[in-house]
Design a protein around this nucleic acid. Structure first.
Lengths: 158, 158
DNA sequence: ACTGTTTGGACAACCACGTTGACGATCGTA
DNA sequence: TACGATCGTCAACGTGGTTGTCCAAACAGT
């Protein structure tokens, strides 16, 4: 017998999306804190990803993250103070300040990816691997591709 | 032929969850702004939900939202200034200040639910209704139930 | 080569949202 | 009645964002 479509109040889907995201992020940072990165905040992983292997500038980083260049600059300041990023001059343009990931930043990034993979495996063990893959495909289908610039080279191995 | 499981980097799932959430929230507030609630911020809907129909106190609100009573109090201050909440005395306990939703708050809440329902229907039209339902079920299965106190009376018609 | 425009980075002021610590007023109870 | 727990609030602070302004450097046109 077909299961009747239950009442699905409007608030349910966004709340569950947020809860799922926060579950992953909280688990990640609890594990990262154990592995020597207690100062890493949820935002920082995305920033480190957005900086990428080749480095970037504050303005470009802001565009990638969808925030102002000033906000990006302040975030870079904090990550520089924590030792995750470093600034340098651009020999080809004296206005630009190159932002690069330090070895410590790369370490945090690598550990994040490892922990995320493990968390995804935990979800796959609960839901089944195909359900997780289906969820990712569905979310990719409805989320605007320009959000967080999923197509930035270096993201997701792309 | 079976599709081989592609590489699914660890960052993909949380990023898509966040992107999906932000997509819904951004769409919601763009629509709410058109309907006379331009000051409503993403957080406010959850706060109004957490206040509920019966009213509550700042301390209890903080517990429901998982934040400190001071942070809850400041958020109530802002929503009172915007006309979405009001404070009153508790005749049975002079320490407690009751927080209640105003008619304007109820209006914003009702419109939020309507818009969210419409957004969910849009997702259902893209993915198919069963995919949206499956995503909700899967997320509910992996998200801790106490996050955002999904079981608070009044949430989701519960 | 000079000039005007665009761009990158930095500074200031401000706002939203969160934290911890302290404290007075009130309540419940021994 | 005295004491401990609880509620609201104030203060100080940190983080992450905004807009506006400004200077120096790069660039394009004459």
């Amino acid at each position: 017998m077909a299961t009747p479509e239950p009442e699905r109040p409007g608030f349910l889907l966004p709340l569950l999306l947020l809860a799922g995201f926060r579950t992953l992020i909280d688990d990640l940072h609890a594990e990262l804190a154990r592995q020597g990165h207690p100062e890493l905040r949820p935002l920082h992983g995305f920033v480190l990803q957005a900086v990428g292997a080749d480095g970037t500038t504050a303005t470009e980083l802001g565009q990638r993250l969808g925030i102002s260049k000033q906000a990006a600059g302040k975030t870079v300041d904090r990550l520089v103070a924590l030792g995750y990023l470093e600034r340098g001059d651009d020999p080809r343009d004296a206005r630009r300040k190159l932002v690069r990931t330090t070895p410590r930043g790369l370490d945090g990034l690598r550990r994040s990816a490892v922990v995320f993979d493990r968390l995804r495996q935990r979800w796959a063990a609960t839901l089944g691997p195909d359900r997780v893959t289906a969820m990712e495909d569905d979310l990719r289908a409805v989320a605007p591709a320009n959000l967080f610039r999923l197509d930035v080279p270096g993201w997701f191995g792309g």
